[in-house]
Design a protein around this nucleic acid. Sequence first.
DNA 1: TAAATGTTTCGATTACGATCGAACTATGAA
DNA 2: TTCATAGTTCGATCGTAATCGAAACATTTA
Lengths: 229, 229
Amino acid sequence: MKEGPDIAYIAALIGDPARANILTALMSGRALTATELAAEAGVTLQTASSHLSKLDQGDLLHARRQGRHKYFSLANDDVAQLLEKLMGLAARSGHLRHQPGPKNAALRKARVCYHHLAGDMGVRLFDSMMARGYIRPEGEDLTLSNEGDGFATGFGIDVEALRLKKTPLCRECLDWSERRCHLAGSLGRAFLSRFEELGWAKRNQKTRIISFSRSGEKHFNQLVTVCTR
Amino acid sequence: MKEGPDIAYIAALIGDPARANILTALMSGRALTATELAAEAGVTLQTASSHLSKLDQGDLLHARRQGRHKYFSLANDDVAQLLEKLMGLAARSGHLRHQPGPKNAALRKARVCYHHLAGDMGVRLFDSMMARGYIRPEGEDLTLSNEGDGFATGFGIDVEALRLKKTPLCRECLDWSERRCHLAGSLGRAFLSRFEELGWAKRNQKTRIISFSRSGEKHFNQLVTVCTR
DNA sequence: TAAATGTTTCGATTACGATCGAACTATGAA
DNA sequence: TTCATAGTTCGATCGTAATCGAAACATTTA
């Protein structure tokens, strides 16, 4: 039994509390500096630096210098998905670090998951697009149908520009709170950006919570309900 | 950042090499005894016992006594899926424990993944069923269409009996080698059993490899190709 | 009953890695 | 230049957890 990928190596990287905190913080999708991540993880800068270089070596994250800052972000969607799956398992078997509280409820409703909308509202968006045939599964990835293209374009998203990029347009991502899929990929990100542009929603910089304004939520509900025919 | 599921706890469980070996061995879907798993992991029985109780406490596996033996298996499909995802990441970033060899090639072609068929052939079965509309995605799970029911029943699978069980009928499971989905769930298992019943394929008890006989593979190819209309 | 096999508990050893203070490098500002 | 901020490297300390020998416990077989 010494064949195959070395899962212990990757799992051990995630298995340290400080590193897990760092990775969780990066699930917001934003790139953070070493100092910020040290604070998130609750360790000194030296310790964080050591952790960050290990995570980098393991290809779990991506580092880029910018002046005297060094910004870190998750390496790719796969890492984010793995982390979500881990959260799902941990949550289901009751291994929470704190009791579910009001903050938790907000997280379950709408939160950032590596730049796209997750939680109850994320799942609702995904389901409605699936039900209307806007997106279709194709192997591991999803395809945006012509109708879906029209829908997104009509909503103010420059789908053509997204298609030119080499990152996948649509992907599905499993929610740990809902245990359902929500929309990821560059289109998923574009939707979240658009919600912010329109003033429907605002990201909380610290907590991954996305708060929708009252009217924003109303518009959102229309968006996912309308023309179910 | 102290909210949410404790991913470090779960990841650390998987992050020990001996425990990772144990979990990998259980990916075959078979229930194994403590002694067998100790051998797989390359540790003494005492050490394995300690690991097994930790994994059990973390709800990663399921233990059942039977006489003077104690059988262990993975707790559920979610654990298996998490492990597959981990393998995918580890493989993609090149963290293999050994060079890809002939054994690896066989693993990539057809192997057991928690009781169902994985690898190239697993993906082909999944794709053909998807293309013919036999299975359809629905949220996280998959639905078996009427045509799909007929197809499976015609192949000698007692779909009605499977439906009565409380475990999901169809699920998708991501392949680490193919990076595509193959069919999991009780129907996935039923297909593999049926292949064995018909003498098309045989499981290698040690390595997760599934070897198809020459005629078995021919039949299989017809099964996934026929009536693509 | 005794013997054999399978598994767990106990205790001691050991090794690895997380942590941080201190010193060092690098970039930007004054 | 000098100062300040950001990050890394070094070295020492410290804790925890993996490991295994030995012994206990459990269950089946003879």
